[in-house]
Write a protein that binds this DNA or RNA. Structure first.
Lengths: 243, 243
DNA sequence: TTTGTCTTATTTGTCGGACAAATATAAAAA
DNA sequence: TTTTTATATTTGTCCGACAAATAAGACAAA
């Protein structure tokens, strides 16, 4: 039996889609910047040749990211959109495929490995003191596992050291996904963890911190890699199975 | 005179905002998954106690990420949202502050440094051959500068090697920002570049590829860091100035 | 029975009008 | 001059109507 993947993907572009594009185009072409005001709804609808309802549905979309802000009597104006605000609305792990979930898990590891240099570049004595406190107060549920609060505190602090608020925000958005993945695939992670413990690959927060205190970037980076080796192994296993 | 920073930031939550939240809540509470159909507009509007227009403005927002898809007569159903689709609509560098622009530039560097291990883990001989071809055909505009096409081809290929489509998509979305930043701050980058050339820090794509071919992860990672040192230096300079 | 065509009912898509709510601006009052 | 009030404008919300698309059932033809 042939699986005739028809799946009418050609969802006819609706008027609202077109208006949304037209608005974005309009902003670009007219070189509009944050703070600039834009014509009122009546004018826009008329000049675009659509009803006010359609225009408002398009505007509504542009409001989620903060690109457009509006107030009665004042009108509408452009503002700096938040790149990640739209994303945060989509964060419902129940709606995400296993593929996406694992991809986001990997992306998180990528970012955490990628910020290593930035951490060593920006870290202060206060940061180290704070990390020490976090590690000291961390409750562990196993030799190498932490409560989710401790886990979250430690890694969040690492991101904060970068001083890059976009990166911090990005991390805070995808963190719920990570937690979900960890709990959902707990049973699959367990045997991998045991093996890694046996081979001495597992790394604690304390060890990570020691590398930081020693100013050993290379060692830290490698330790971070090992800290996440459990997930990398699982991802590799799933990928090879699905091939 | 006190600048009474009132700035009505408490943009009163509109009905549409509330309905949007209510819908997301509803999906979660009822454990709805992709493929599940949801009540029609009339029912939803009625049960939420709002007019159909308001409901549709909220639905419109959830349609941009693909979380909801709808067709006449069929109704609406849930689908897997695209985490980055909403973001791509916000990519208009003209609307982004300098701070955000530089943060995104840094995020890009973070990701590119973070995917190093993944690249070495997944790379195939075909990938290397393709990289060689790209490097071979690359047109250079200076000793260490490439045409934007060559630049784009090379780095895009690196992301593709990870096999992580979310990461690939993320890169493709923020790439326009990077290009914009590079052209906008061209004059500021130039003196830094000269210094880095003098100190022998600059790295070509060819050298990066050599590390890959040699299977030298550590050397590659360091080279990637140097490849972006020009931007890191600039970011550091701007940050210290703004402090 | 099977296949193709037509009709119908349902749901989203779009429009227009109406009024409520908010508030900058101007006018009036103190 | 300062305060209060009125007004006009713009977004926010609701309602009703019709168009467009199409799944499902009825019907006709082979």
């Amino acid at each position: 039996m042939v699986e005739l993947e028809l799946k009418n993907n050609s969802r006819r572009k609706t008027l609202v889609d077109g208006v949304e594009d037209a608005l974005l185009e309009y902003f670009k072409n007219n070189n509009l910047k944050p703070g600039d005001s834009i014509p009122n709804e009546m004018e826009l609808a008329e000049s675009l040749g659509v009803g006010r309802a359609v225009l408002r549905e398009a505007l509504s979309r542009l409001k989620v990211s903060g690109m457009i802000i509006s107030r009665p009597r004042i009108g509408m104006m452009l503002s700096e959109p938040s790149l990640f605000d739209g994303m945060s609305k989509c964060i419902n792990p129940l709606l995400m495929s296993e593929k996406t979930l694992l991809e986001m898990l990997e992306l998180r590891m990528v970012v955490e490995e990628g910020i290593c240099s930035s951490i060593f570049l920006n870290i202060t004595d206060e940061d180290i003191a704070e990390l020490e406190e976090i590690v000291g107060l961390s409750q562990m549920t196993g030799a190498y596992t932490y409560t989710s609060i401790a886990e979250h505190q430690f890694h969040t602090k690492l991101y904060q050291i970068t001083g890059n608020s976009s990166i911090i925000k990005f991390q805070s958005i995808i963190y719920p996904i990570i937690e979900y993945v960890k709990s959902r695939y707990k049973d699959a992670f367990r045997p991998i963890e045991l093996e890694l413990i046996k081979s001495g690959t597992m790394v604690t927060h304390e060890e990570l911190l020691n590398h930081i205190k020693a100013g050993d970037l290379e060692g830290y980076r490698k330790a971070v890699g090992n800290h996440f080796e459990i997930y990398r192994t699982y991802i590799k296993k799933v990928r090879s199975k699905n091939r």
